[in-house]
Design a binder for these strands. Sequence first.
DNA 1: GATTTATTGTTCAAAAAATCACAATAACTA
DNA 2: TAGTTATTGTGATTTTTTGAACAATAAATC
Lengths: 215, 215
Amino acid sequence: MVNKKCIIRLLRYKNALHRLNSLGFVRVFSDNLADAVGVTASQVRKDFSLFGICGNKRGGYQIETLLEKLNHILGKNEQQKVVIVGGGNIGAALMKYKGFEKEGVKIAACFDIDPAKYNHREGDIPVLPLEQLKDFVRQHHIRIGVIAVPDIAAQQVLDFMLAAGIKGILNFAPIRLRAASDCVINNVNLVLELETVIYFIINGTESSINNRHIG
Amino acid sequence: MVNKKCIIRLLRYKNALHRLNSLGFVRVFSDNLADAVGVTASQVRKDFSLFGICGNKRGGYQIETLLEKLNHILGKNEQQKVVIVGGGNIGAALMKYKGFEKEGVKIAACFDIDPAKYNHREGDIPVLPLEQLKDFVRQHHIRIGVIAVPDIAAQQVLDFMLAAGIKGILNFAPIRLRAASDCVINNVNLVLELETVIYFIINGTESSINNRHIG
DNA sequence: GATTTATTGTTCAAAAAATCACAATAACTA
DNA sequence: TAGTTATTGTGATTTTTTGAACAATAAATC
């Protein structure tokens, strides 16, 4: 019942609420959130209902309390620390990207096997030898990791990360990973996402797709 | 019926077939593809059926002809050219990433408003002033573009891209874009993808989620 | 060449997800 | 304060997606 799509919607509600909040709004209706996120108002209410979130009949939802509840559900009350394995193109871009910090996600360190990438300048996110992953993860109580290595190395890196105690994976390598121990894997395949757009452009014109968000 | 999830599956079948092909395999069964992609064999056969792809009873599918058919459906027979708008972290990483070229997707150019980013070294992907987008798109018959600018600029950039003739968008900015003209928009929100993993790690432990691919 | 076996293609059933619809009711209005 | 109105929360319904099952049948075997 609580699947990825549902959580993604909650996260989007949270983002929309954050914007409304900083614009000075105090309350919000399911309609408003539906518009902001691109779903129906029923969907919004049902999602809330599923997590026991109540509003006021005719009064809508108090933004502040709604945000608190969503933040609690989504684990956004404390900063979450993650590690990246792979300091190449994608890993480097993620380290520089400001979007994570803004949402309370702290990239604690990056790990690589290439000594040329190692770096421990004050202020920068440290890039460390992969051997140090296990100790680092233990020491900082980290459960989430990003795989940003070439596909050929990804499975091996996953095994290593799981052995180090990582439980949740965001995987950018374009292969299906096999996991022995219990964990959660979320795959992001950038090429696939672009190829999907290409398909709908090539094949979608005759069926007059107008202005469709496909994901 | 032919939705994003279905196309993503087809693209994954294609990738799996490519690997099998380069390993010297000649034919494949729905079971094999199901394993490789993480779906049921029924799903594989149903997907193929939907696109009129037939195999041989008891003989499975001829990899070569299957690949040809999938490539045709997915528009992979000719190289697809795309542009990136935004030469920041994400844009730069995408330009350096080898995965696109490997799959027949050519990043033709990148556009930015910051002159410090402009670059036309031989061999590199050119980074050009945004004003040149329209002419470039016309000249190279480009229909697909990537938005890799800060969220604050994304809507304006989208409007500009649509005006330039772009029809398909891969959007990395974490906001919901509004489009006047007909187009296809695929959103990739990296922070959201990571936050999703965080949710399942925080809330998933008690429900004994074992080794789940959530996307 | 007959028999067995494994795999497809498709129909039917099940499960999941989204949407509709409306009673309940709190907030407004006069 | 009584009446009106807008919005929630949820049960019912529809739509979409997935999975199971099995007849049809081509390949393999003997």
